[in-house]
Design a protein around this nucleic acid. Structure first.
Lengths: 150, 150
DNA sequence: TTATATTTTGGATAATTATACAAAGAAAAA
DNA sequence: TTTTTCTTTGTATAATTATCCAAAATATAA
C-alpha cells in the first residue's frame, strides 16, 4: 500500500531532519519520488499522531508523539527480527510463531504500539495472537508486522 | 508576575479540559478574569512547549510536552512542601535549605524541569544550590520555586 | 469480468497559529 | 525622580494547518 510506505517515510524524515512545516515534508517526499500534497501530509501527521513541538531553542519541530512508542517499535522490530519464525492470517486473527520465550514480550510490545486496527494481542511462550478489528484490518496488521521482520 | 500566573493557569486548563484551539484557552482564561489575546496564548504555548496532539479518537488536543516533566514538577512540589526549610537569594544563586536527605532528590528534580533560566543545580544532603543564568533569572527562579512551597 | 462500495487523494479554502511591528508596561540606571 | 533599557502585549496579518467536497484509486461483491 502506498499510504503506509509514505507514512513510514514521513516518520523517518522527521527523525532525520528538523522540520517545522508540512510543506517541507512534501518537498522531501518528492525527492523520494513520492508525490503528495500538503493536505495529505496533514492527514498523515494526524494519523501518525505527530506533534509540532516548540523546540527548546525557539522555533518548532515536528516530532514523534512520545519516545515511548518509538522505543516500543524499535524493540519490537529487533525482537521480531531475532525471534520470528512464521505467521498465519485467518479472518480477524494474525498468529505469529516465535522462538520459545518471546511470546509475552512481543504481545506486550504490540499492545504498546496502540495501532487502531488492533483490538488486542496476547502471547504465550512461543506464539502471539493479534486480534484485529476485522479481517481487513488484520491484513493491514499483517503487512505492518511482516514489514518489521524484513 | 502576571505572565507566570497566566502560564500556570494555561497548564491547568489544558489538563482539565480537552482543548483543541487557542481561542478556547483565551475564553477560559477570561472566565478567570485573565484577559489576553490569541497572540499571547500562542507565545505562551510556545514557551510552555505545549503540543497540539492528534487525539487517538480523531480530533486534536493541547497537551503537556511530556508526562515526565509533569511528574517531575509534581514530585518537586510535594518534596518541597514536605522538606523545605528556608532559602536565600544572592546574585545568580538561589540556595535552598531542606530537611536532611532531600538535597540530591530536589536538585535532580529541578534539573528535570529544564527551565531555561536555570543554568544548573546541585545538592548535598540538606542544601540545594540553584545557579541561574543571571541575577534577574535567579529572582524568577526564586519566585517559581517559592510558589511551589506554598 | 462489471458493478458497487470503500478508501484515499487533491484542489480550494476555511480555520487556526505564529509573528512583525508598534505601543504599553516594568525594571534598571542615572 | 527622570531617563533608558528590556520585556510583554495587542493589532493586524502572514504563515501554516485542517477539512469540505468531488474525483480518482482501490478493494469487494456479484
Amino acid at each position: 500500500m502506498r499510504k503506509f510506505e509514505r507514512q513510514k517515510a514521513i516518520r523517518k524524515l522527521i527523525q532525520q531532519y528538523s522540520i517545522d512545516r508540512q510543506e517541507d515534508i512534501v518537498k522531501l517526499l518528492q525527492e523520494q519520488a513520492i508525490k503528495v500534497t500538503q493536505a495529505t501530509v496533514s492527514r498523515d501527521v494526524k494519523e501518525l499522531q505527530l506533534v509540532k513541538l516548540p523546540a527548546p531553542n525557539g522555533g518548532y519541530q515536528y516530532s514523534l508523539p512520545a519516545e515511548k512508542k518509538l522505543n516500543a517499535e524499535k524493540k519490537l522490530k529487533k525482537t521480531l527480527h531475532d525471534a520470528y519464525l512464521s505467521s498465519r492470517l485467518h479472518e480477524s486473527f494474525f498468529l505469529i510463531k516465535l522462538l520459545p520465550g518471546n511470546g509475552p514480550a512481543v504481545a506486550s510490545l504490540i499492545d504498546q504500539l496502540k495501532v487502531k486496527e488492533i483490538f488486542g494481542s496476547l502471547g504465550d511462550d512461543d506464539t502471539v495472537l493479534v486480534i484485529a478489528q476485522d479481517p481487513r484490518a488484520a491484513k493491514e496488521v499483517q503487512r505492518m508486522l511482516l514489514e518489521m521482520v524484513s
